[in-house]
Amino acid sequence: MTNSLEITQASKAYKRKNQSPVQALNKIDLKAQSGDFIAVLGPSGCGKSTLMLSAGALLELDSGKIVVNGQDLSELSNSQKASFRANNIAYVYQEFHLIPYLSVIDNVRIADLALATGSETKAQEILQKFGLADRLHHLPSELSVGEQQRVALSRAIYSGAKIILADEPTGNLDAENAETVLKALKDFTEQGGIVLMVTHDDRAVAFAQKKLTMTAGQWSS
């Protein structure tokens, strides 16, 4: 199946009390399809995170359209967006956001709460691929930073997402771990997925085939 992500004239402003609104996205356009690994660069506050959240159906645009795999996100109710997200979109965060009281395998399988299907075997296979086969029952606090990010990545892949939105995925990682994560993301795109990655990391940029720079809510390159 061919995956696609299409952002058309997307605008989003954050209203502030007694102050003028902050224009986070200003008529942004983006097109991505299966195999695309896009790096989004830009200074802090330029709208990168807003772009990621909007693309992941977590934030509503003021204007414009986001179509994922043919589905216009603005046509979905909150409940439908949740289901859509569960089956199509996954996030990888800089801070990993693992649940501290769940083991590695349970953290990966947390997606089962939203998914209709899931299996222990599938989770184990993914974790094995990321070299975490012997850490299945460890808690996040017992893992290294790199291992934690690999668990987060495993969770994203386990969910069966077609699009991974990665927000500074290598921000807290050393070179070796960063490379492991980036290679995994690359593999994901080579298998037909789309990766939209926000980053400041030159190592990460090197893995992406498309680089876009954002300034004040608009593409500058």
Binding site: A82, R85, A86, Y91, I110, A111, L113, A114, L115, S159
Partner: peptide, 15 residues
């Protein structure tokens, strides 16, 4: 943050 994560994963609010 855990709640934010769960909701971002698509877990329904009713759950």
């Amino acid at each position: 943050y855990e709640l934010g994560l769960l909701l971002s994963l698509g877990v329904k609010t009713s759950k």
